[in-house]
């Protein structure tokens, strides 16, 4: 039993670690603003498919790690991720049965909400960012969502078949 659970946990944890690594890989300055928010995408996928195991608690812990890794205010990404994942879990039943296009549109809204929360917390803390490219990750994240979700469902079914 515990072996089965480990089997199911491992790919999720590994995907979260991989997302964290992708979010700190140095990129050329020109494409840096368009780095998709891998952590948010990964967490949204797992919260949508396995809401019982991965919901706001996981999001909060991962958010704190993101805060430390990026040197932002402690709690900023934690709060934003927590809220986005809360919304995702709340509507996970609808999200699961959506066709891909509609699901992608919802992910766009979630990512925009996420980026807005970060923007808002920055504003309250006195760190203003006026550039339009701030919203780049929302666009690239939405564009890459179909690939991300297909990739993860591939992993999920393979793990289940192995069991």
């Amino acid at each position: 039993m515990s072996n089965g659970r480990n089997n199911r946990r491992l790919p999720v944890l590994m995907s979260i670690v991989a997302a964290l690594m992708l979010s700190i890989v140095p990129l050329p300055t020109a494409i840096e603003p368009f780095r998709p928010d891998w952590v948010a995408l990964t967490l949204i996928y797992w919260a949508m498919t396995l809401p019982r195991s991965y919901s706001v608690g996981t999001a909060w812990v991962v958010g704190i790690i993101v805060d430390v890794a990026h040197g932002t205010l402690l709690g900023q990404h934690a709060l934003a991720l927590c809220f986005v994942i809360y919304v995702t879990v709340k509507f996970h039943l609808q999200l699961r049965v959506f066709p891909l296009s509609q699901m992608t549109a919802t992910v766009f809204a979630l990512l925009a909400l996420y980026q807005f929360l970060l923007f808002w917390i920055n504003g309250v803390a006195g760190l203003h960012t006026e550039s339009v490219t701030y919203w780049g990750p929302v666009i690239t994240g939405t564009l890459i969502w179909p690939l991300v979700s297909m990739f993860f469902s591939g992993i999920r079914y393979r793990v289940r078949a192995d069991r």
């Binding site: 019982r52 919901s55 909060w60 709690g75 934690a78 709060l79 809360y86 709340k90 039943l93």
Partner: peptide
């Protein structure tokens, strides 16, 4: 168990708790 929806009120409570904790951390850290 994995696929059943979590208890809605418990989820809301946990979210409020964690959100409060984040805001506390934010204020202290700022």
């Amino acid at each position: 168990n994995q696929h059943r929806a979590p208890n809605a009120s418990a989820l809301g409570f946990r979210f409020l708790l964690l959100a409060g904790l984040s805001i506390l951390l934010l204020v202290i850290d700022n």
